[in-house]
């Protein structure tokens, strides 16, 4: 009885360890967004986005601080955080998803990622296309997708509808290294 239990225990530990080796992390991922509107174009960049890639389970997770976005104008930064995404209350935006038909051996592949995007405290099912390239023991994932401001309960006052686009283009670039805790 005791021996069997020990074996079970060991096997659990072993799978835990292999999981760790299958994980890759990006600590300086880039996310930028663009709003093309008639009054002005708004562009912002976040260079401190965190992402983790679980190759064995074909899963990906992204987490970023809204306050880390940098804008062309400082006032835009204040308004973005204070009046739109309310980063005092919702400091982070996250994404969790599964990479469909992910091929661990392919050096270059374009795959669909199905997941949940959480912005402004609202979670929305999102599918996006990403380019995944593998280079020895590192991964690079890039892509672009569009989110609708309305989906995340971000309110644009009627007088400012011509200042901010209803759909925002998001671009992302993640460079992954093997994950060590």
């Amino acid at each position: 009885m005791n021996k069997r239990l020990l074996l079970l225990l060991l096997s659990f530990f072993a799978t835990h360890l292999t999981n760790a080796q299958d994980e890759f992390i990006a600590r300086q991922g880039q996310v930028s967004f663009f709003s093309y509107a008639s009054v002005e174009n708004i562009e912002a960049q976040n260079n401190q986005v965190l992402s983790i890639l679980d190759v064995a389970n074909k899963k990906i997770a992204v987490s970023m601080l809204m306050r880390a976005f940098v804008f062309k104008k400082d006032l835009m930064y204040e308004h973005f955080n204070e009046s739109y995404v309310e980063s005092d209350i919702y400091p982070k935006a996250t994404f969790e998803g599964n990479i469909i038909d992910f091929d661990t051996k392919a050096s270059n592949q374009v795959k669909i990622i199905e997941g949940n995007l959480n912005i402004h405290g609202i979670t929305k099912k999102t599918n996006l296309k990403a380019t995944i390239s593998k280079d020895e023991n590192a991964y690079l994932i890039t892509g672009e997708f569009v989110v609708l401001v309305n989906d995340f309960d971000i309110k644009i006052p009627p007088v400012l509808t011509s200042n901010i686009a209803k759909s925002i283009t998001l671009k992302f670039t993640f460079q992954y290294q093997p994950y060590e805790e």
């Binding site: 835990h16 999981n19 965190l50 899963k59 997770a61 987490s63 996250t94 969790e96 994950y179």
Partner: peptide, 16 residues
């Protein structure tokens, strides 16, 4: 739980 949910929790620890 470590397989599914906790990728995000791992990231939470990484935030500076």
């Amino acid at each position: 739980s470590t397989n599914a949910q906790d990728l995000l929790k791992k990231l939470d620890k990484e935030h500076k």
